[in-house]
Design a binder for these strands. Structure first.
Lengths: 203, 203
DNA sequence: AATAATTTTAAACGATTGTTTAAAATTAGG
DNA sequence: CCTAATTTTAAACAATCGTTTAAAATTATT
């Protein structure tokens, strides 16, 4: 096997990530994954003990190692305006690379006792929120309006992430190609911070 | 059978709606639905010809008869400010009643050639957009800033709908009960229009 | 009351699911 | 080169999937 080839284990995990992200856990079969990895189903259970364990590895990697690091930009030590621009920019670039990631993560969290909820609490150790702290400080200094931090955080997340969750709907409604959709998302790198910051600074 | 009892057909459709919205098409079994409707699996296929057809009825009802009418508020003949407040209020109330609806609709649209895409185009006949027209008129009059309509529409939709899609994540992260979550959503009835209108009116 | 139409039941169908087995092929180590 | 460990293969496992069948029970019609 040449050096450029992936190991069988890697091919299977990559195939699993692709298919799980596309169809979700319930609609994905072990045979789907094996075929996509160009192997047989026995090898899937040889390297990963079960479909369930393979899924958990994919989920942990997608959420913990891909999404969370970008989300943590809000905890960076940066001025408010620069931080918001950086967050929207990096998150948009991540989602352009991995547009199915948010739907994958959130759809697997349907049902309060979903199999990923326990994993979430494990990964999501209570982190101090530098963003909240920052909004409160700037409001105290009179630089921005006093706001409910949660509302601002939710709105910011919503405006960046939701378009990718509703990507197919959007593309249909507005008759967009994938390229045109990504261009629309790029324009949001300015539009979203502008809206948030205009809101924070006025009235 | 007493008059207050539902017909078997209604019980099955209600059960199907409940389970499909909770788990999606792929993770729902005909036996799930039959058990939830307190009947047997043969009756599911007796009244609805297949799981597929039952799903399509549920989807069409959820999207076409529940979600779309509220979304069409943006086409109402109302002043801009009143319209935005009305849209956010009605959509929030709808989603408090049916919090799983957006995730259900959007998760079934994964994959460009999903089985609901054809249905969408059928339902979603090109509608004139009074909201876009209105934003352009007000901007021409100098009442609000000139904006890309799509960006405003996407942001508005995102801020209202996304919190319900990420409901479980939000409840976990912020340690919210269902009641506290709904209270947060109620507060957004003011916060969202304020942000949009502040943005439109300034600079 | 007798008959026809409708609704419900229990059982089974073949197909597909996740998983396991045991032998074959390949690679690694002495 | 021989042996041991690892990887790959083909086949099968029981369980569950969506769906169908045919008879039983119920309701409606005359």
């Amino acid at each position: 096997m040449s050096k450029t080839d992936q190991s069988t284990e890697e091919k299977i995990k990559d195939a699993a990530k692709k298919i799980f992200l596309e169809k979700g856990f319930g609609s994905t079969t072990t045979r789907d994954i094996a075929e996509c990895a160009d192997t047989n189903i026995a090898l899937v259970n040889y390297y990963f003990r079960s479909k369930e364990r393979l899924f958990q590895e994919v989920f942990k990697e997608s959420f913990g190692e891909t999404f969370l690091p970008v989300a943590r930009i809000l905890n960076d030590d940066l001025p408010l305006e620069a931080k918001i621009y950086k967050f929207v920019d990096h998150m948009t670039e991540l989602l352009k690379r991995d547009p199915l990631l948010p739907m994958f993560v959130l759809s697997e969290m349907r049902g309060e006792h979903s199999k990923v909820c326990d994993m979430m609490t494990a990964i999501h150790q209570q982190e101090v929120n530098r963003f909240q702290q920052q909004l409160e400080e700037e409001a105290a200094k009179g630089n921005i309006r006093k706001t409910d931090f949660s509302q601002v955080e939710i709105s910011l997340m919503s405006m960046v992430i939701f378009p990718f969750i509703s990507m197919n709907m959007l593309k249909m409604k507005k008759n967009l190609t994938t390229e045109e959709f990504y261009q629309l998302m790029d324009e949001r790198k300015k539009a979203i911070p502008e809206m948030i910051l205009t809101y924070l600074r006025h009235k």
